[in-house]
């Protein structure tokens, strides 16, 4: 592990990281748009956040600046907080309607 990536650019060009992240991000977007299960939508959002994280780490390495990696930690904090709140909301809803199908929540029209 010590010498795996002494020369970071040999692993893959930056474009590939960008494409990979974009791919993951788009997958996340697709998941949010495609699915109706709230939990899966939520997980798709996590996937999007992780695409951001990956890209940040890549940029951080290519720029040789630690700021990008630091940002990732904050994203993780945010993700954790979001998960706590989001799942709390889901549990709350489940208690009321015994389902988390987003279609059942149509008292307010989109």
């Amino acid at each position: 592990m010590e010498n795996i990536s002494a020369q970071i650019t040999q692993v893959a060009p930056l474009e590939h990281y960008i494409i990979l992240s974009a791919l993951l991000f788009s997958l996340g977007v697709l998941g949010v748009l495609l699915r109706r299960n709230v939990i899966i939508m939520f997980m798709s959002i996590e996937l999007m956040l992780n695409a951001c994280n990956l890209l940040l780490a890549a940029f951080s390495a290519f720029h040789s600046s630690a700021a990008g990696q630091i940002f990732v930690f904050f994203i993780m904090i945010v993700a954790a907080a979001e998960v706590a709140v989001g799942l709390a909301i889901i549990v709350m809803i489940y208690r009321n309607i015994h389902s988390i199908d987003i279609n059942e929540l149509s008292k307010l029209k989109w």
Binding site: I45, M48, G86, M92
Partner: peptide, 13 residues
Amino acid sequence: NEAAIKYFLLGAF
């Protein structure tokens, strides 16, 4: 509840 989940999901999105 619905407000919360919608706000939350779209906000996170």
